[in-house]
Structures are given as C-alpha cells and as structure tokens.
Design a protein around this nucleic acid. Sequence first.
DNA 1: GTCTATAAGAAGATAGAC
DNA 2: GTCTATCTTCTTATAGAC
Lengths: 203, 203
Amino acid sequence: MNTKQRIMDEALTLFAEKGYGNVFVAQIAEAVGIKAPSLYKHYKSKQDIFNAILDEMKQRYDAQAEALNMNGNDATADAQMFAGISEDALVQMGIGLFSYFLHDEYAGRFRKMLTMEQFRNPELSQLYTQQYVDGPLSYQAMMFTILTGEAILAGDDVNVMAIQFYAPIYMLLTLCDRHPEREVEALRLLEQHIRQFNRNYQV
Amino acid sequence: MNTKQRIMDEALTLFAEKGYGNVFVAQIAEAVGIKAPSLYKHYKSKQDIFNAILDEMKQRYDAQAEALNMNGNDATADAQMFAGISEDALVQMGIGLFSYFLHDEYAGRFRKMLTMEQFRNPELSQLYTQQYVDGPLSYQAMMFTILTGEAILAGDDVNVMAIQFYAPIYMLLTLCDRHPEREVEALRLLEQHIRQFNRNYQV
DNA sequence: GTCTATAAGAAGATAGAC
DNA sequence: GTCTATCTTCTTATAGAC
C-alpha cells in the first residue's frame, strides 16, 4: 500500500484518539513502521498531514452529498425512494443513518477528530456543522417535504420535523462515540424514538 | 481576588479556546498577570490546574443536581412545579434550559473544554455524558412522568419523550458553541420545536 | 508570592549518507 | 525513500534571590 496513504490513515487514527496536539510525528511514523524523518519525504509538515486528511474527507463528503442529493438542489429527484415508505422503512432509514455514521471506519475516526478540533479554527467549525448538522438536516427536510407532499406523513413544518427526527440520532451517535458499549441501548431507544415519531406525524 | 482562583479562571478560558494541550503555562500566567514560575506556588503542575477546574465543575453540578432533583431520587417532590404547566411554560422551560446552558459563563467554557477533552480518558467521557446527556434526560423524563401522570400531556414512554424534547436542545446548543452568531436562528427553531412537541403530545 | 535564570527534556524539522 | 545524527525551538518545571 502507498506509504503516503498509510501515513494519512495512521495519523487519522491517532488524531481521533488523542487530538492533533497530543500526537507526535514520531508516533505516526512508528505506527506506519518508519522513522519520523522519513515522513517529511511525503508531507512537508505535521499540519500538512492534517490538511491532507481534511481534503480527503471533504472529497468523500462531496461525493456522498452528490449521490444523495444532500445539496437540496435536486430535491425531488429521488421522490420515488421515499414515496411508499412505511413505518418500518423509516425505522430502517434512521437506524441505517445511525449505524453508517457510527461504524464507517473512516467517517468515525474523522468525526472524533473533528469533534476535538472544531473550535480551533472557523474552517473546522464549518466543516463539522456542514457534515453533522446542516447537511443531515437539509437532507431530512427534503425527505419530509416529499413525505408530507405525498400525504404519507402529516406535518406543517419540515424543518421542525427534520430536527425532531435527526437530533436524537445525532445525540445518540455522539454518545456512542464516547461510550461504544452503549450502542445496544442507543439502538433500542432510537427505534422507539422513530416509531413514536411516525405516530406523532401519522396522517 | 484570590490568585489561585484567578489562575483557574484564566486557565479555563484558554483551555476552552485552544484545548488543554495547546495552552502553555506561560499563557495562563500572562493572562493572570504573573510569570509562569509563580504559578507553581499555587498549583504543582499544569495538570493540577486542570484537575482543580474539574473538581469545581463537579461540585457545581452536584449542587445544581441536588437543587433540581436531577438524581431522580425524589422525583415527585416538585410535582407542583410542573403540575399546571402550559404550552408557553414548556417553551419557556426549554428556552430557559438552552439559554442557561449557552450563556452561563463558567458552564459554557467548561462545556467547550470538555467537548475537546472528552476522549482523552474515561473520567472525562463519563463527566460529559452525565452533564449533557444522562443528567438532562433523566430530569426531563421525571418531568414527563409528572406531566403524563397528571394527564397534562399524553405519551406512553417518558424516555422517548425526554429524548425527543431534549435532543434538539442539545444539538442546537452544540451548534451555537461553534457558531454563536446563529443563536437567533437556533432560538426560533427551538421554539417551533417545542410548540410542535406540545401538539404531538397533546391530551 | 513574585521574580530571573536555568535545567531538563520533548518535539518538529533538516542534513546528508546509503 | 529510509536511515542516523543533529539543530532549533519550545515547554514544563525547579532553584534560589528578593
């Protein structure tokens, strides 16, 4: 495997565990199996490694956003996807979102890193908010626009529906980032939440 | 003012801005108006300052938890407090919780610091979860136990009600920690959420 | 309790051989 | 591309005068 890629990968793992400032280039090098000075043949500084991780994550996010129409540009394009959705399908979609966020190897490490670094500069704040708040909310709002439009659910304000649907997912996700052992409990509560949500907005 | 106290205060401000590892004792000293070595007459190490902040915050939390019966021990003690609650009062309580969390000087700085340090060790994870997830959830569950018991609201599962009520507050709070300029928007959405929540659980 | 001077060590980064 | 050796700077902490 490409050494440049492996450096990024091991660095992300370490940054996610300890935070950027508490990781030393020697540790990254050791994880890769080389000595610290060798890193500088691939990246010009420690910050450069961090930036590379950021760039890759932005690329992945954009690719995913495009695939899911999370930009809201082409909101009704996949109306069919939600058109005939049942309570069970809604549960599956919420749990799927949660599980993807929680278990995707790269995404999970990146989220923890960003959680720790989010206050360091405005770009990181923006990125966090886009990926874990505004992005999901606008996607959910789009979904509820379709579901209420098709009279599958009944609600006046799709933005309120979106936050009521998504905020518990978000909170349980960040809970499990701290306490992976509470995943079962979180999943149970999440399912109950979504079933209740569905009842709350029944037509 | 007590120098020992001022060191703790300035250190918390800096830790909340940059994270523990990115703050140097010389910066803390400068903020206090003394030289770095003088700090060591008050605290034996940088970590010792951090621990003192933690201890103070735990004390404050315990005092507040006792005042609000957030332990769930004496759940029905202040039933009267919620007994005749109206929609507007529920809005006030949600917004009050949000605003208190957001604007309390000490609490706000402490939350940001804990957000950055939460993965560093299990004690900090526990503390974060207790203060911002389990504590508020158990308090809200107690409240909804009373409100459903008195038939002011209708719901089968107080834990689901608690997470549906509180998770949006939590998410908007962490959003405003990153983007204080979005407070107005957050407050508007929060109010709409609570009014909708009230309708969802109307008797 | 605060200062100056300084020890002791850690950490990022470079030089140059292989 | 990787290594050893090393530079430079930063950072925590101590010593000891005032």
